[in-house]
């Protein structure tokens, strides 16, 4: 049974807004429509449970940080730190997202239609049945997937505002020691950091990509088959111990 509330967030400070949301949750509300969101921080941060958020406007810093469970649809853009250390749940952004998207994310899914900023998917990590997934419809900034330890990052490069920029920035996947990055149409060698294995995808990968691209497409009203109709490459770490031999005992 869902109980829905519409909150006009215009002019409400984030502390108050989030307090309101928590109060409504205590009263049994599960569905929230937040209007005129303008950079309010921490929406759904640390929230656990089966809740739905429709956020209209610009979602502020650290939206959905430490989140476990809720579904967020952001109709607009999201600022930095979306899905920071997120545990479970699903986030859909119809616009673009800022830097450090999905930092240390352990589970859940994030779908961004447009471009994302720098250091996206840093330190993503999978554990047991938890598998974090980020699908980026546009292009990504530098250091994508830095220190990645698990999970899946898919970059499509299709819905970007920037026609000239490469699909990902420099030092792609520095220090990666787990997880997989899929890139549609490949990536220039100069973008790659050390310790990477760049390969063509196989059948298994294809199934996996298709699964998440289909989610992406259905969430955002796009054609999955058209997205799939291209060459994908797979990037994985060469070693799980990238810095294993760096040291001398003293």
């Amino acid at each position: 049974m869902t109980k829905k509330i519409v909150i006009d967030a215009k002019g409400i400070y984030y502390k108050e807004l989030n307090q309101q949301i928590r109060k409504f949750i205590q009263k049994g509300y599960t569905d929230f429509e937040l209007l005129n969101v303008s950079g309010q921080r921490y929406i759904a941060t640390g929230l656990e449970g089966d809740y739905n958020f429709l956020i209209k406007g610009v979602a502020g810093q650290d939206t959905a940080a430490f989140m476990r469970g809720p579904y967020l649809r952001i109709e607009g853009n999201a600022q930095d730190g979306l899905g920071n250390t997120m545990d479970a749940g699903k986030i859909v952004v119809t616009g673009m997202a800022g830097d450090v998207l999905g930092y240390a994310m352990r589970g859940g899914e994030i779908y961004v239609r447009g471009d994302v900023g720098y250091r996206v998917g840093i330190h993503m990590k999978a554990y047991q049945d938890k598998l974090p997934v980020i699908v980026i419809g546009g292009k990504a900034g530098d250091f994508l997937g830095e220190y990645m330890a698990g999970g899946i990052l898919i970059v499509l490069g299709m819905f970007s505002q920037d026609k000239i920029a490469p699909i990902t920035g420099r030092s792609l996947a520095t220090g990666i020691h787990g997880g997989i990055i899929y890139i549609r149409d490949g990536v220039p060698d100069t973008q790659l950091s050390f310790n990477l294995k760049v390969e063509e995808i196989d059948e298994q990968d294809s199934v996996l990509i298709h699964k998440y691209v289909s989610n992406f497409a259905s969430e955002l009203g796009l054609d999955a088959e058209e997205i799939m109709d291209a060459r994908f490459i797979r990037i994985r770490p060469k070693s799980h111990r990238p810095y294993g031999n760096l040291y001398v005992p003293n």
Partner: peptide
């Protein structure tokens, strides 16, 4: 390997620290 990066990648400035402090307080 459990690699802890030198910086928090969501803190590159003092206002980012504030952002994380309050993210934790909210959480």
């Amino acid at each position: 390997d459990a690699l802890s990066p030198a910086p928090h990648h969501d803190i590159y400035s003092i206002e980012d620290l504030r952002q994380l402090i309050y993210a934790l307080k909210e959480a």
